[in-house]
Amino acid sequence: MWDYQKTLQYPIRIQNPNPLYAKIIQSQYGGPDGELGASLRYLSQRFTMPTRELQGLLTDIGTEELGHLEMVGTIIHQLTRNLTAQEIKQSGFESYFVDHTAGVYPASSAGVPFTAAYLQSKGDPVTDLFENMAAEQKARTTYDNILRLVDDADVRDVIKFLREREIVHFQRFGEGLRLLTDRMNEKNFYAFTPGVDQPVTLNG
């Protein structure tokens, strides 16, 4: 279970509303490489992780991703306050507004609703850890793209923090993968499914 703490992981104080920026950043809420997919991916995969380190790592990173989901939602919420009809139409936000008003909804920037097809839980820890490392890099690229498109200092500061966390998580997943392969037969890392076909403690 989880306890809720009434703080963000990193402070967010966006002074200037901007619905176009909200629409761009939306993708990290419910898009293909967003925080919702990240949290569900790790929190689902952890059940079949074969070592205590990996069970802990996926629980913890999955938990942090829920905090990031809250942060991205907060960015969108603060960017879409006090909008006039004219601002909504001029910014290209009207296609979002007509369905959701200023509600925070998990969809991509292009309006595609969130789907579990964005993630996999394969039951093979080597496969899952490679997916997770790729996922962190894809999210890092998306944050880089956001930084190319957004020039508001209050927003960029938070996006840079989130981008940095993708790099830290990539590093931790890489270490987790190494801890796993250290315990496997080095001639057969990819020859079978460690979670099912062979116990991962094959070499003791």
Partner: peptide, 27 residues
């Protein structure tokens, strides 16, 4: 209170700013 539970309930929990609020005491 910042955490729901022993001290975090009722108006003391509900009334202060929530993390997404853009107020001086927010986030």
């Amino acid at each position: 209170p910042l955490t729901a539970g022993e001290t975090g309930y009722g108006d003391a929990w509900l009334q202060p700013a929530w993390p997404w609020d853009l107020t001086k005491e927010g986030c």
